[in-house]
Amino acid sequence: MIEAKNVSKWFDGQRILYDINATFETGKTNLIIGQSGSGKTVFMKCLIGLLTPEEGEILYDGRKIRNMNNEERRQLRTEIGMLFQGSALFDNETVLGNVMFPLTMFSSLSKEEQLERAHFCIKRVGLENADKKYPSEISGGMQKRVAIARAIALNPKYLFCDEPNSGLDPKTSILIDELLSDITHEYGMTTVINTHDMNSVLGIGEKIIFINKGHCDWIGNDKNIFRAKSQSLNDFVFASKLFQEVKLVLEREVESEK
């Protein structure tokens, strides 16, 4: 479990995050949602430790990041897997090389065992025929899957995903969402996904944290997001024409229930 307690962040005197309190539960897909520029990426970077919040604490299973020395931080990082918005694959390595990278750097496995683990991860994301290809030779969706394979290579306890569906078509987005949800439950990881894709919210939003202008405005799940009272959340959720139609249907249902 990851906890954020009263997290605040400033950049050049401008406050970006305001006392955010949130808990990310183990074995669940925890989503951080919000408009572009709302501060969700900054919040995620604070969670990972890439940025240090000026106020507040981040705790990984009770361990405060702020109190950790370099060695403890290094150890924590080996427990974290990260999927970046642009995949962040190493251009000069093949798919297999990318997945092998964390294993080569941190595992005590033999070369054969490392290869076996890498092939297992590649197979798990359904790319067994692409292991010799370079990132530039595969599609965006495949790159995301390679990044997932690399992220899970060391069996991490925590998985972070920054907008995993950006730039992908709806069908591939659903595949990526399902894959993330499956591996979260399979390995009992604490998965934190940063997104503004409503399909992801409804598909895998076991816990949802809504960030608006640096404030945590609402916490819930995919079951109760349509019934939320938060105006800013409703503005965000029902922004698209499709969801405006959904809203009308819901309102009609409520009226008929009355």
Binding site: Q75, R77, T78, F84, G86, A88, D91, F101, P102, F160
Partner: peptide, 17 residues
């Protein structure tokens, strides 16, 4: 520089490299 802007360096940092 390209590694930095495509987040490859961030990826390494997060892995603990």
């Amino acid at each position: 520089g390209t590694m930095r802007v495509t987040e490859q360096i961030d990826a390494m940092d997060i892995m603990g490299v």
